[in-house]
């Protein structure tokens, strides 16, 4: 069973988003997603300063099996990226909610978090996807 921390918000493309005290939003991929992808071997990170729209492709994760796009859950500007992933891309597998974070967005406006899925909604979504397979 994959972990879905209650305090995070999620997307139907399997990113998680965390609103931090400084008003920025940290983004990664869920435990469910990392398990489905398998061993992550390479990550193409965005440049800081990039303006992103909610739903836009921001990063690419390559596992042994396939390449997957990572979409920004919210609109704003990329202000930080996790450069540890250059040397240790497998942090996405081992610590999807901690050391495996991918980028941080300064939101264009507030309230965007409310549009995202709650942990409970995301869990239901994953269960329905699992049944399709």
């Amino acid at each position: 069973m994959s972990e879905t921390p209650q305090e995070l918000r999620y997307t139907d493309t399997h990113e998680w988003a965390r609103l931090d005290p400084d008003g920025t939003v940290c983004v990664g991929i869920s435990d469910f997603a990392q398990d489905a992808l398998g061993d992550v071997v390479f990550i193409e990170l965005p440049e800081t300063g990039t303006e992103v729209a909610a739903g836009a492709e921001v990063a690419v994760i390559e596992s042994v099996k396939a390449a997957s796009d990572i979409y920004s859950p919210i609109s704003g500007e990329v202000v930080r990226v996790n450069s540890d992933l250059v040397e240790e891309p497998d942090l996405v597998n081992s610590e999807p909610y901690e050391g495996g974070w991918i980028f941080v967005v300064q939101p264009l406006n507030d309230d965007q978090m409310a549009d995202l899925l709650t942990a409970e909604q995301y869990q239901e979504f994953c269960e329905s996807e699992d049944h399709d397979h």
Binding site: G38, D39, V41, V64, K65
Partner: peptide, 8 residues
């Protein structure tokens, strides 16, 4: 089977 644990 595609993998049992980790392909690597």
């Amino acid at each position: 089977p595609m993998r049992y644990s980790s392909t690597i």
